[in-house]
Amino acid sequence: MVTFKDFRNNVKPNWCPGCGDFSVQAAIQRAAANLEIQPHELAVISGIGCSGRISGYINSYGLHGIHGRALPIAQGLKMANRNLKVIASGGDGDGFAIGMGHTIHSIRRNVDITYIVMDNQIYGLTKGQTSPRSAAGFVTKSTPGGAIEPSLKPLEVALSAGATFVAQSFSTDLKELTAIIEAGMNHNGFAFINVFSPCVTYNKINTYDWFKENITKLSSIEGYDSTNRAQAMATVMEHEGLVTGIIYQDEETPSYQNLVNGYSEEPLNQQEMMIEEKDLQELMKEFM
C-alpha cells in the first residue's frame, strides 16, 4: 500500500512560508499515492524558478533542468520508457515566457505526460519582475510604470493549440487539485494543468483572497460539458480565465505514442540495442 508519505523525502523546501507551491507538492504526492504508483515509477521533470525546485522535494526520480526546457526533457524521457509516469512542472515564466514554444508544441504533439504550471503571475526567484501572466498595469521591478503588455491567456492558448486535456486549479483547494492531477496522470495524452499558486512575497495583487473572490468553480456551472471545446473556450473567455476544474478533455484522440509508426510496445530502454547482422547487410545493400 502506497501512501503520500512514501513520496516525501527529507529535503526541506526553500519556498517562503505560505507559498502556493507547497500545496502543489502535496497534491502531486497524494495523486501519485492514489494512483498506487511506486515512487520509483514516477519522474518529475522541472524547470528553473522557485517552482522548478519541486522535483527535488518529492521522493521520486527527478530532474531539475534548464529554464524553460522541462517539457522536451520530459517527452524524451517518456519516449525512452513508456511505462514511466512523467510529470513536467515549472512556473509561469518557465512555461509561458522562455518555454512558450515548447508548451505550444508539446500540446500539439500530445505525448502522454502531465504538465503542471505553478502560476503566480510574477517572477519570484529573481525577486519580483513582471511575468507574461502579470496583468496590464501590474507594477513590478521591471515595470515600474505598470505592465503595458496584456496578460497571456494560457487556457485559451491551450484550447486553440489542440490540447486534449486542459484544467486549472487553485493551490488552497487541495482536494480539487489532487483530483485534477490524478485525472491528468490518467489521461492518455498531454495533460495541461495550470495552478494558481500565489507568491506571498512579491505579488500583493493576486493574493489568496483575490483568487477566492474572483474564481468560479466549473462544478458550479450547471450543465458544463468538459468534452465541448467551444463551450470550454466560451466559458474561459467569459470568466477571463478565472475558472477551476477540468475545462476540457478529449479522450478520443490517440496520444503521440499511439500514433508513432512502429513505436515499440515494450519500453525502448528494455530493448536489445544491437542490430542483427542481417539487418546491417540489408541496410548496406541500398547503397550498393
Partner: peptide
C-alpha cells in the same frame, strides 16, 4: 528542444 529531448531520452536509459 532537440538537444534537451535527447538528454531526456538518454536519462531514460536509451
Amino acid at each position: 528542444a532537440a538537444a534537451t529531448m535527447a538528454i531526456g531520452a538518454n536519462y531514460g536509459g536509451i
